[in-house]
């Protein structure tokens, strides 16, 4: 009998695994087990919570960003105006940008979703909020009246000048033809530092607004927010997906998701996200279908860890 390898088949047939057990039984009180489990887990939960608490790093606001890193804020605002920021060129679902989005072969799923959450970075992040002020800057009408090409040349000249300025400091920028751009960005900086910009952008969604898409995208276009995340090991190339701030355990169950981003062939690909999501969906399906996959389902027989699980049973055969 022992010569025949044990079956790892999922099928229900006339064997011991498929029949109701008619052999020896032992007392096993499920409700008692549940009660003991609830008590033990309760002690653990209360103990861990009391000893280790939980992380809560305060949110970044446009105000805190503008205060802590004004140069970065101004550079980002310029990019939002000029349409050169990450969000401005993101494409679907925020705006129409030709030839962006990750492709799976010929299919661009991102573009297929269409513009569902329209965001015009110049208007939504800069000129719109500025126009809400009691005394909107004069520069606003200059900007509004200017042609698209003119706007682009102003913002691009100012972006270059900011890069060359000492510490990228907007107050130390060389003289140049930047049109209304410095006035607009410095007004926006002042507005943000006063704390008025957070409400202005969030208010674009109406009185009740639980959608933080605009505010978060604006934050993410700058270097400050990303720098904070980078400093706390939270970015994608640092296995950040599974990390939590401080030493708190995070979503360690995302280790495999995170892992693929570290594999150069996958993580470095132009369509890395789509590849990783695809691989993970496939692997999850495969995990569910392990009982049907020859080889994968046979490993437990080849590496007989089950002899430890059932050591009592095998001892008393």
């Amino acid at each position: 009998m022992s010569k025949i390898p044990a079956s790892v088949s999922w099928r229900s047939k006339d064997d011991i695994a498929s029949r109701a057990w008619t052999g020896k039984k032992r007392e096993y009180d499920l409700f008692k087990e549940l009660t003991v489990g609830v008590i033990v887990v309760g002690v653990l939960v209360v103990g861990l919570s009391a000893v280790f608490s939980s992380p809560d790093e305060p949110s970044v606001t446009l105000k805190s960003w503008a205060t802590a890193a004004p140069a970065d804020f101004v550079a980002t605002a310029t990019a939002e105006l000029g349409g050169t920021s990450g969000t401005a060129g993101y494409g679907a679902p925020y705006n129409n940008t030709p030839d962006v989005g990750q492709k799976l072969g010929p299919i661009n799923l991102q573009s297929l979703s269409g513009v569902q959450i329209p965001i015009d970075t110049a208007v939504d992040f800069v000129t719109g909020p500025l126009s809400l002020q009691a005394n909107p800057p004069q520069a606003l009408s200059t900007w509004t009246a200017a042609a698209t090409d003119q706007r682009a040349s102003w913002t691009s000249a100012y972006t270059d000048a900011l890069t060359k300025a000492p510490n990228n400091d907007p107050t130390q920028v060389a003289v140049g033809d930047y049109g209304p751009v410095p006035a607009l960005t410095s007004s926006l900086l002042a507005m943000a530092q006063q704390g008025a910009l957070d409400g202005a952008i969030q208010g674009e969604g109406g009185f009740f607004n639980l959608d933080y898409t605009r505010s978060i995208l604006f934050l993410g276009d700058g270097a400050y927010f990303v720098g904070l995340a980078d400093g706390a090991h939270l970015t994608g190339d640092q296995w950040g997906m599974m990390n939590e701030t401080g030493n708190y355990p995070g979503q360690s169950w995302l280790w495999l998701f995170s892992f693929w981003y570290q594999v150069p062939v996958v993580g470095g690909a132009a369509n890395a996200d789509i590849l990783v999501v695809g691989i993970m969906l496939l692997l999850t399906v495969l995990l569910g279908l392990v009982p049907f996959i020859p080889g994968l389902r046979t490993i437990p027989r080849w590496i007989p860890i089950h002899r430890l699980v059932w050591k009592d049973y095998y001892k008393r055969r």
């Binding site: 269409g114 959608d211 933080y212 995208l217």
Partner: peptide, 14 residues
């Protein structure tokens, strides 16, 4: 967004 569902499962929409 890359897989085309970001508009309907919007992680920034609290």
């Amino acid at each position: 967004n890359a897989v085309g569902i970001g508009a309907w499962f919007n992680v920034a929409n609290l």
